[in-house]
């Protein structure tokens, strides 16, 4: 314990703080981009997966294959796969870019499924009533289905977002300097594990807590049927 207290001044140097802040920024960006892209693309693929027209059939098959594959491969495996694909085709050297793209692909697959199940939770009779009044497919989704589906979609979606903050730690495996990697580096520099990983733990909490609150707020706002 004494050693720990002695260590504190040398741990919280300006350099270490900047180092951790940068790593936190990387974790934040990975999560934020993943969630935003995942949510918008997830909406899109859920919406197209529910279409019935024959000429969109190839798109539907592609969507189903894509979601089923990416939800079945472990995060780490897709990350490494992407890493080698990028290496082989020399697309980009930036580890961050590789991580971001992988994160988006995975988030899209997962959130797409959450949104699809939300859409399907709404009774077919609501579709019937609306289509009998000449609503188009997209009008039904916008006016009738999504306003009712949010309360089914949001809780698992935010659960996924928060889980995702932690999952981005896997990006350290290909060398992206995010929070977990930063902790390892500090630990390797000789700082005690308690201090290195403890501070990272607090930073993860700082990232996820507001997101959790935001989720609760959105649930209240959108999930009551009164709009």
């Amino acid at each position: 314990m004494e050693r720990l207290i002695e260590e504190i001044p040398s741990f919280f140097t300006i350099w270490n703080i900047i180092f951790l802040a940068k790593a936190m920024g990387v974790t934040f960006l990975l999560t934020a981009i993943g969630c935003l892209v995942g949510f918008s693309m997830g909406c899109l693929i859920a919406v197209f997966r529910k279409t019935k027209t024959i000429f969109l059939l190839p798109l539907r098959i592609f969507i189903i294959l894509y979601t089923e594959i990416f939800r079945r491969i472990p995060f780490l495996v897709s990350l490494l796969l992407m890493f080698y694909i990028f290496q082989i085709f020399k697309i980009s050297d930036s580890l961050f870019v590789i991580a971001v793209i992988t994160v988006c692909l995975i988030a899209t697959a997962y959130i797409g499924e959450i949104i699809r199940s939300g859409i399907e939770s709404i009774n077919q009779t609501q579709w019937d009533a609306a289509s009998a009044m000449n609503f188009t497919y997209f009008q039904i989704l916008k006016e009738v289905i999504f306003p009712q589906a949010w309360k089914v979609i949001l809780p698992p979606a935010f659960g996924f977002f928060i889980m995702f903050i932690k999952d981005t730690a896997l990006a350290s495996q290909i060398g992206v300097m995010e929070l977990t990697f930063a902790a390892k580096v500090l630990n390797n520099k000789g700082f005690s594990p308690l201090l290195s990983f403890g501070s990272v733990l607090i930073l993860y909490f700082i990232l996820s807590y507001p997101l959790d609150r935001f989720g609760k707020h959105m649930e209240k706002k959108l999930a009551s049927n009164r709009n």
Binding site: A129, A130, A132, M133, V144, N225, N227
Partner: peptide
């Protein structure tokens, strides 16, 4: 379909009002 649905209104057994 559009024309038919313009001309014909339907009321369902389960009302099917938009809950939102």
């Amino acid at each position: 379909l559009r024309i038919v649905r313009e001309k014909i209104g339907i009321v369902f057994q389960q009302y099917n009002l938009f809950q939102n």
